[in-house]
Simulated assay, not measured.
Amino acid sequence: MTVTKSGFILSYLKYNDVSAIVKIFERENGIESYFIKNIYLRQNKKKSYLSPLMGIDFTASESQKGLPQITKISVSDSTKELEYSIINNAQMMLAAEFIAKVIPYGEPNGIVYDLLSEYCKNLSQNNALAFYLYKIIKYLGYGFDFSDAVYFDTKNGIFTNESSTFTLGEELSQIIRSIDDFSFLNMGLKNTHRKKIIDILMDYCGHHIADFTSPKSLEILRQIL
């Protein structure tokens, strides 16, 4: 039996030099694993498809032993027009690793899938990564509590008038206040602020999402931004 599906590649592992095991986030089935035979053969031009958050359309055949096997693969419209650069690749790597950490294996999540699709369409926007990471965090039930108070508490996700170890300064607190608004996508930010906000989101997840640890790709992104 064969089925045709679409999804985003989250990670991949080389197997026996020429093949790979791929973890894919699908709209209908959530995160699933597949086997791709001979993808690393020299003459196989599709090995470049194995990239974090690459959107793919694929055909898979069920296997009585082991993982289902991908027999046909192509780049989907969701990422076909993306400009691949060092910065974009690093951001997509972080987003893919983040999804793998917060979405349970095999659990459908159409809303997060749609947010990822939107993120890919808006990747060229200055602050797309932080904006959509927050949107996913909010959907998972851990959105910030916005108020008119001055300082943002990075541990509890609230605004307060009392400064503490976990509160930001007024300037960065004001930036965080805008993170849930579409105007944040193109807000002019210093790279230091952009990196700090992503760090804040990852630390916040560590306080609120069970077993969450910062993605390994976070350090790569810090060095590139």
Rank of each mutant, 00 (worst) to 15 (best):
M1R: 07
S6R: 10
S11T: 13
L13D: 15
D17Q: 11
S19K: 00
I24A: 00
E26S: 06
R27Y: 08
G30H: 09
G30K: 07
E32Q: 10
Y34G: 02
K37L: 07
K45A: 05
S48N: 09
S51E: 10
P52L: 05
L53I: 07
I56R: 00
D57K: 09
D57F: 08
A60M: 15
S63D: 10
K65P: 07
P68W: 06
I70G: 04
S74G: 06
T79R: 01
T79I: 03
Y84A: 10
S85C: 03
A90E: 04
M93Q: 14
M93P: 07
M93S: 09
A95V: 13
A95Y: 14
E97R: 00
F98K: 03
I103G: 06
Y105R: 02
G106I: 02
E107G: 09
N109A: 03
N109E: 06
G110W: 14
Y113W: 08
D114I: 02
D114W: 02
L115Q: 03
L116T: 06
Y119K: 00
Y119P: 01
K121V: 02
L123S: 08
Q125S: 14
A128D: 05
A128Q: 04
A130P: 01
F131M: 01
K135D: 06
K135Y: 07
I137R: 00
L140S: 00
F146T: 12
F152G: 08
D153H: 01
N156P: 04
G157R: 03
G157Q: 04
G157V: 04
F159A: 01
T165P: 10
F166D: 10
G169Q: 04
G169T: 06
E171T: 09
L172V: 03
Q174Y: 14
R177I: 02
R177G: 00
S183G: 12
N186R: 13
G188Y: 10
L189G: 14
N191A: 09
N191C: 10
T192S: 11
R194E: 05
K196H: 15
K196F: 15
M202I: 11
M202P: 03
Y204C: 01
I209S: 03
S217R: 00
L218Q: 09
E219P: 11
R222H: 14
